[in-house]
Design a binder for these strands. Structure first.
Length: 485
DNA sequence: ATAGCCTTGAGC
DNA sequence: GCTCAAGGCTAT
């Protein structure tokens, strides 16, 4: 890392950033995640220090997965340019009292050209990517797991393709050697200089149906990257999932209720070790368990994921299941939009009073985690994260390029980069007034990771004390993750 | 765990 | 051949 950046970056210690990323460290903040980080107090809160590193523009991708030494990355100049732009902007603001809403420098004319001058060779979704919900065999939520291939991934999949070449963003020649971010999408060079023909990612889809709901209100024709549209198309029908899960849980509660019939009770004695009434925590476990099933089902139908071999699919899911669960919860609250109540996957609303009672009943750890989740919801609410961005985040989490021992590592890395590029493009197109929206969104991922890690630890602890219902996919995932890493 | 110094190597 | 951003090593 270069230690001679501007004063802010100097203070941030790139060595700390490198260690954090390389060792996959997870910090937590004892305060409210806004600790002041400066030269003298930087060691007090590593969580906030890491956040500030990201804020200042350090990139996770700059820490090389392959640990190759030497050479130069593709976004070196970007740091400098960004810094120059920021300083320019600051100077402008200081001099003329202008606000941050001034035309973002990233969206100068070359950028506009890159969005509007292009055509779209999108594979016709209806034929090449049939609707997930209708074509895949439905997952048997109760019985399909717990066998050898517990994720239900053993169904025949299409032949393995080495690279998603048919998809918009072409793989870069250097990719196989170094794990770097494609400069086309990150370097400011792309936006500020006249692009060479091959550096123009020419695949952007004009989504005519969305023009009227343009968040900017000024976009002449909202341009959404094809990949983002495909992600949204792969989303599950929320009502369907809701029905499935609430039905399942209703059955469970009926079976375990003290008011159940004698016959039912006898059945319970035969089939379960403890036919006692389900605790709130137990119920939540079942809910999370069922949500996880639906996440696996979603992944199975996902573009890119379904091209992978089952082994790699399992590894990716084992790595990120808890993050996807946390994101699922958070996204539901975000789109629910009612700050005062919590929406469950079953469609039930937890009122503020009930929520307070729940928090009081839960232990310190659990209530802390729930509150941490709510804080994350608030932060994303401030950003007004939209559904398309949420969809992109799911893919960024699923295709984690840090997962090791994959049969097709480069494919996963490539997909990750494509998703990154698509999200960047999307935010720049749709929210041009917030040029740093992309990094603002990505900045929330470490906290999401930290929270999911804490949830895993907590689940493990609860499992060891025998409080997690048996035959639970959560536990199976926990085991799989901890034995394979 | 941190941070300073050294080595490496792609790109100019 | 120089630059500079990456990783490695090591004293603290």
């Amino acid at each position: 890392m270069d230690y001679s950046y501007d004063t802010e970056l100097e203070e941030m210690c790139p060595g700390f950033f490198k260690r954090t990323v390389q060792n996959n460290k997870r910090y937590t903040c004892a305060e409210s995640q806004d600790c002041k980080i400066d030269k003298t107090q930087r060691k007090r809160c590593p969580f906030c220090r890491f956040q500030k590193c990201l804020n200042v523009g350090m990139r996770l991708e700059a820490v090389r997965a392959d640990r190759m030494r030497g050479g130069r990355n593709k976004f070196g100049p970007m740091y400098k340019r960004d810094r120059a732009l920021k300083q320019q902007k600051k100077a402008l603001i200081r001099a003329s009292g202008l606000k941050m809403e001034t035309t973002p420098p990233l969206l100068s004319s070359p950028q506009t050209d890159y969005i509007f001058n292009t055509t779209l060779p999108v594979p016709t979704p209806k034929t090449s990517h049939p609707n997930v919900g209708t074509t895949l065999a439905p997952v048997d939520y109760e019985h399909s797991l717990y066998a050898s291939s517990s994720l239900g991934l053993s169904v025949p999949f299409s032949a393995h393709t080495p690279l998603p070449a048919q998809y918009p963003y072409p793989p870069l020649p250097g990719r196989a050697i170094k794990s770097e971010y494609p400069d086309h999408y990150t370097s400011s060079e792309h936006y500020t200089s006249a692009s060479s023909p091959e550096s123009v990612p020419g695949y952007t889809y004009v989504d005519q149906t969305q023009v009227s709901i343009s968040p900017t209100g000024t976009t002449p024709g909202l341009t959404v990257p094809a990949l983002v549209l495909e992600f949204v198309r792969c989303e599950q029908d929320e009502l369907q999932v809701q029905n499935k899960i609430s039905t399942h849980l209703a059955h469970l509660q009926q079976e375990q209720s003290p008011r159940s019939t004698v016959a039912n009770q006898e059945q319970n004695v035969r089939h379960a070790a403890k036919p006692e009434r389900l605790t709130t925590f137990g119920l939540m476990c079942h809910m999370a368990d069922q949500t996880l099933f639906s996440i696996v089902e979603w992944a199975r139908g996902c573009i890119f994921f379904k091209e992978l071999k089952v082994g790699d699919q399992m590894k990716l899911l084992h790595n990120c299941w808890s993050e996807l669960l946390v994101l699922d919860y958070i996204a539901r609250q975000l789109h629910h939009g009612k700050a005062e109540s919590v929406l469950l996957i079953t469609g039930q609303e937890v009122t503020p009073v009930e929520f307070t009672t729940l928090l009081a009943q839960a232990g310190v750890t659990l209530s802390g985690m729930i509150q941490r989740g709510q804080e994350l919801v608030h932060r994303l609410q401030e950003l007004q994260l939209d559904r398309r961005e949420t969809a992109c985040l799911k893919y960024l989490i699923l295709f984690n390029p840090d997962v090791k021992l994959l049969e097709n590592q480069s494919y996963v890395e490539n997909v990750y980069e494509q998703v990154n590029a698509a999200l960047l493009e999307y935010t720049l197109c749709v929210y041009p007034q917030y040029p740093d929206r992309f990094s603002q969104i990505l900045m929330r991922l470490p906290e999401l990771r930290a929270l999911s890690a804490q949830s895993e630890d907590y689940l493990c602890y609860k499992h060891l004390s025998g409080e997690v219902p048996c035959n639970n996919l959560l536990i199976e995932m926990l085991h799989a993750k901890r034995t394979c890493i």
